[in-house]
């Protein structure tokens, strides 16, 4: 069950030019968190902005009761969030939304993340590892300094294939080109992806062409985060009449449900 509470910040540091990692203790909430869900965080209760910011679960440690978020500074809210310090409390609501579905048996899974979109795939990788899955991660960014989650991925124990636009690490080019060039679709049972929409569109197309099922995590501006305000509306397919709500119906959707 989701709740709202104040998390004690035990770690907050910059991991790249514009990305930060924040860890806080909130045991009751941590115990409820599933991969692919998100929390709605208030960057600063006293000085605004008005609304909470939805951030996906990057890592969760149910033993210590902690939740970790990876975020990119994109505006006023995330800029204010960077000012939160160790031992401060952050006001958090969650976990919210429908997360990734996990396989019943161990599978060969492919995780494809772009930029800060890698965040929800880390907690997912941890859960998949516990299920005994064989995990391959394709991770695309602009340049070497933006590849920020290698330590976590190594610790979890996955095969990592990086792609950078400038070729400073790994494959030179788009992560979707890496996918087409280097991944043998017959070795993959399921694909999970999160990142810029054109990237996810390419991944979904690859999956459909090769008959591989999979899921994508979407992003949308939100107000309430619980399906009440109907603000984060979008059509999953062009011909749909009905608008789904990313916060409540998602943020994770199967490739079968959505046309990018």
């Amino acid at each position: 069950m989701p709740s709202v509470g104040k998390g004690l910040v035990i770690g907050h540091h910059q991991v790249s030019d514009d990305m930060y990692e924040i860890e806080f203790i909130l045991p009751a909430m941590s115990a409820e968190c599933e991969p692919g869900q998100f929390v709605h965080i208030m960057p600063d209760m006293d000085n605004g902005p008005l609304l909470r910011r939805p951030l996906s679960l990057y890592d969760v440690d149910k033993k210590s009761g902690s939740i970790t978020l990876l975020y990119k500074v994109v505006g006023q809210g995330t800029r204010l969030l960077t000012r939160v310090r160790n031992k401060d409390y952050v006001d958090v609501m969650g976990p919210l939304g429908r997360g990734f579905s996990l396989p019943g048996v161990a599978q060969n899974v492919l995780l494809i993340g772009g930029g800060v979109g890698i965040a929800p795939l880390i907690y997912l990788a941890r859960a998949l590892k516990e299920l005994g899955c064989n995990i391959k991660v394709l991770y695309g960014t602009g340049t070497r300094s933006e590849l920020v989650v290698f330590d976590k991925l190594r610790q979890i124990g996955v095969e990592i294939m990086p792609a950078t636009m400038d070729g400073t690490v790994g494959y030179k080019g788009l992560v979707t080109d890496l996918l087409a060039d280097k991944v043998n679709p017959s070795e993959i049972d399921f694909i999970y992806t999160c990142g810029p929409e054109p990237m996810m569109a390419g991944v979904a197309q690859f999956a459909k062409q090769n008959g591989i099922p999979g899921e994508a995590s979407l992003e949308e501006h939100m107000a309430c985060g619980v399906g009440a305000c109907l603000g984060c509306a979008r059509k999953l397919k062009a011909e749909d009449q009905h608008y789904i709500k990313v916060c409540k119906d998602g943020p994770v959707f199967s490739f079968a449900e959505i046309d990018f």
Binding site: L50, L51, H221, A223, C229, L230, G231, C232, A233, Y243
Partner: peptide, 23 residues
């Protein structure tokens, strides 16, 4: 009613705009 096409909400100084369209 299906409501308005997105984007439907926007944050503004000390407030927000919405145009849900009575979905």
């Amino acid at each position: 009613r299906n409501g308005n096409k997105p984007p439907r909400v926007a944050e503004t100084p000390a407030g927000m705009l919405n145009a849900i369209g009575l979905e």
